[in-house]
């Protein structure tokens, strides 16, 4: 089997395993998994920029929130149906990521981190400022009755899970395709040595902008799906905390590995879930686990897997 075939089977296999898990897992866990899958899409978007292109953004919550509010406000005030509202969310995320990319990419390194952080903060404050429509921190609920796509009830466990899985699978395959394409290799070249990439004739600026936009729209699709499937949009999702989350998920799961974001999101979700069952000081346990993992698996779980056993992992 060639590496490409292996990689294809891996991606297909993961999606099939996830689909089967719905029928095997207790309802509590399959409910969690629906949420994890949506968040993993956010992390995959982040991974394209951070793990493959080497750009560390601290402002991705802005893209997540753009998708979330694009969808939420369109449904709330313009009575969009869910599909049209998802498209509205994607368009808003697209516009925001083009603007942010265009401006923030004039900087590099730490300055890029700060500029993206500031943009996200500005986005958060904008949501608060228009509290009359967005309901600020309190947020607003998207009515159960509106969350129907044809005959599919997105509020039912099954409808919710398989919609989340559909989005996940689409993004997962897109990422798998991108990282193997010439475009994906060029992004890795930028991560490895930007100056060399330029001196081979790559238009680094343009490639980076494309990476920001794809990453931003994917993150936005997660935001839109989150609002739609869980029926709520709120400014919390635009806070710094939500910009840090995908970074953590990707670091833990494995930056620059296609399955890294999924693994990282599952791991962190259950780490917090179980440790909060043991003690109210759950962040202490979670924090300790994170420190240990960074010490002993600095490339993340999937990164470690690739280093030790599966060098072909894309």
């Amino acid at each position: 089997m060639t590496d490409i075939q292996r990689s294809n089977w891996l991606h297909i296999g993961v999606v099939i395993a996830l689909a089967c898990s719905f029928f095997i897992l207790p309802e509590y866990h399959s409910g969690n998994l629906a949420r994890i899958l949506v968040l993993a899409v956010y992390a995959m978007g982040y991974n394209l920029l951070f793990g493959y292109t080497g750009l560390l953004s601290l402002g991705h919550a802005l893209f997540f929130a753009a998708g979330m509010y694009g969808l939420g406000l369109a449904m709330q005030f313009f009575d969009f149906n869910p599909i049209a509202a998802v498209i509205a969310g994607l368009i808003l995320a697209l516009v925001v990521s083009i603007c942010v990319g265009f401006l923030a990419l004039r900087t590099t390194g730490v300055a890029f981190m700060i500029v993206t952080l500031m943009f996200a903060q500005a986005g958060y404050l904008t949501i608060l400022y228009f509290g009359e429509y967005t309901r600020g921190d309190e947020g607003f609920v998207i009515q159960q009755a509106d969350r129907m796509v044809g005959m599919i009830d997105l509020t039912s466990p099954m409808g919710r899970f398989f919609t989340a899985l559909l989005l996940f699978a689409i993004c997962f395959f897109i990422i798998a395709y991108i990282v193997r394409s010439g475009f994906g290799l060029a992004l890795v070249a930028i991560r490895e040595n930007e100056e060399r990439a330029t001196m081979l004739g790559y238009d680094v600026m343009r490639l980076k902008l494309q990476a920001v936009v794809i990453s931003g729209v994917m993150s936005g699709s997660a935001g839109a799906a989150y609002a739609l499937l869980f029926g709520y949009a709120g400014a919390t999702f635009a806070t710094v905390q939500y910009s840090i989350f995908p970074l953590l998920w990707v670091l833990l799961g494995g930056a620059g590995v296609t399955i890294g974001p999924l693994i990282g999101t599952i791991f962190m979700f259950y780490l917090i879930d179980y440790s909060s069952a043991i003690t109210p000081a759950y962040m202490l346990i979670a924090g300790l686990a994170l420190v240990l993992l960074t010490l002993f698996a600095p490339q993340g779980l999937a990164g470690e897997l690739r280093r030790r056993f599966l060098p072909w992992l894309p």
Binding site: V188, A189, E192, N193, R196
Partner: peptide, 11 residues
């Protein structure tokens, strides 16, 4: 080609 070697180290 650069005076100070410039390649993609991780590839």
């Amino acid at each position: 080609t650069f005076q100070i070697t410039s390649i993609f180290p991780g590839l």
